[in-house]
Amino acid sequence: MDPIVSNEVSIVIPTHSERRWYSLTRTIGSARLQTHPATEIVVVVDHNPEMAERVRRDFPDVTVLENAYARGASGNRNTGAFHTRTPFIAFLDDDTVASPDWLARQLAPFADPAVVGTGGGIVPAWAGIRPTWMPDELLWAVGVSYTGMPTRTAPIRNVWSANMIVRRDAFLAVGGFRTGFGKVGDQNRPEDTELCLRMSSASGGRWMYVPHATIDHEVPAERSTFGFLMRRCYAEGRGKVQMAGLLPKEQELGAEKDYLRRTLPRAVARNLVRAGAGRGGYHALRAATVVAAVLAAAWGGGVETLAAVFESTAHDGTL
């Protein structure tokens, strides 16, 4: 695919720890090698002056900024995005490697002025062997594309900030990512989904998913355990309830409902059929994993709902 030479784009890469140094260098390297060259590569360091100085020293051709907001990826991304001057802003995480035609492919849908943002496919780069009990429908839990997403370029409600491009004017119009609402500590709130919904609502525009505009996303060994999956699903349940509280009443979580009503039941049925046909006992484990994931998310959602009710009644003085 030929690059769209008229579309100037900056790439923003948030980072925070020297433990990610090797990964960060690979991310920067892939950003440099795009067939559609970026106008500027911006690395934003989250309250770590020593690391910021190291990036400046080792990558003199890269713009290095320090997070101007409270600690967290949302403020980190905003710091970089607000600095840029190009019509488009691309975001990569510091543990990803973009394919050479990533920018070219993902910029293509912006030929339609109604498109406010795009996202691309995220491929898992497992540190070890992928767990046999992990169904494709739950791969979102390790930050990669999962079964149920479009297989060709198509409209989508939201994309992930690990692989996202936005129109700068639409992004600035809503104030960027919601700071203080994201993945900080044990919180796992979907700041990227919330941004996508705000941008669509404010502009009347839409998001497009470009599955072949791929990046590889590292999946460390500690994220390949059943315990991690359950904690992640529990946190997701809490985060979605928190996000729902920020949305207008008429803006329901339709994608989540469809996923629960259609995608996951099909996953259970398909794996049970395969297990019953003798195609591998791990299929039964995958079916059981889906059920456990739903229960963990429901538990998290219930806890967050009760916490919100308690906080509301305490604030009203009824307790």
Results as ranks from 00 to 15, higher is better:
Val123Cys: 11
Glu137Phe: 02
Thr153Ala: 14
Gly143Asn: 11
Gly119Arg: 05
Pro131Thr: 08
Tyr146Gln: 12
Leu138Pro: 01
Thr132Pro: 03
Leu138Asp: 01
Gly120Tyr: 03
Tyr146Lys: 07
Pro155Arg: 15
Leu139Glu: 14
Ala125Gly: 09
Arg152Thr: 12
Leu138His: 02
Val142Ser: 09
Ala127Tyr: 08
Thr153Lys: 03
Trp126Ile: 08
Ala162Asn: 06
Ile129Asn: 13
Arg157Leu: 12
Asn163Cys: 12
Trp126Met: 11
Ala162Val: 11
Val159Gly: 10
Asn158Val: 06
Ile156His: 10
Gly143Thr: 09
Glu137Asp: 09
Gly148Asn: 09
Pro155Trp: 04
Val142Gly: 09
Trp126Ala: 05
Glu137Ala: 14
Trp160Leu: 11
Ala127Lys: 12
Val142Asn: 10
Ile156Gly: 05
Ala162Trp: 01
Gly128Asp: 13
Thr151Asn: 09
Trp160Asn: 08
Gly148Leu: 08
Gly128Trp: 02
Ala162Lys: 01
Ala125Lys: 15
Asn163Met: 03
Trp133Val: 12
Ser145Lys: 00
Leu138Glu: 04
Pro131Val: 06
Ala154Ile: 00
Val144Ser: 06
Met134Asn: 03
Thr153Trp: 00
Ser161Phe: 02
Pro135His: 03
Val144Phe: 04
Met149Gly: 02
Val144Lys: 02
Ile122Tyr: 00
Ala127Trp: 08
Trp140Asp: 09
Thr147Ala: 15
Gly117Ala: 15
Ala114Ser: 15
Pro155Lys: 13
Gly148His: 08
Ala154Met: 10
Arg157Asn: 13
Arg157His: 10
Val115Lys: 05
Asn163Val: 04
Arg157Val: 14
Ala141Tyr: 00
Ala162Phe: 02
Gly143Gln: 07
Ala141Asp: 00
Ala162Gln: 03
Arg157Gly: 14
Glu137Ser: 13
Pro150Glu: 00
Val116Ile: 15
Gly117Thr: 06
Thr153Val: 10
Gly148Trp: 03
Arg157Tyr: 05
Pro155Ile: 07
Gly128Ala: 14
Trp140His: 12
Val159Leu: 11
Trp140Pro: 01
Trp140Cys: 04
Met149Asn: 07
Trp126Tyr: 14
Asn163Thr: 07
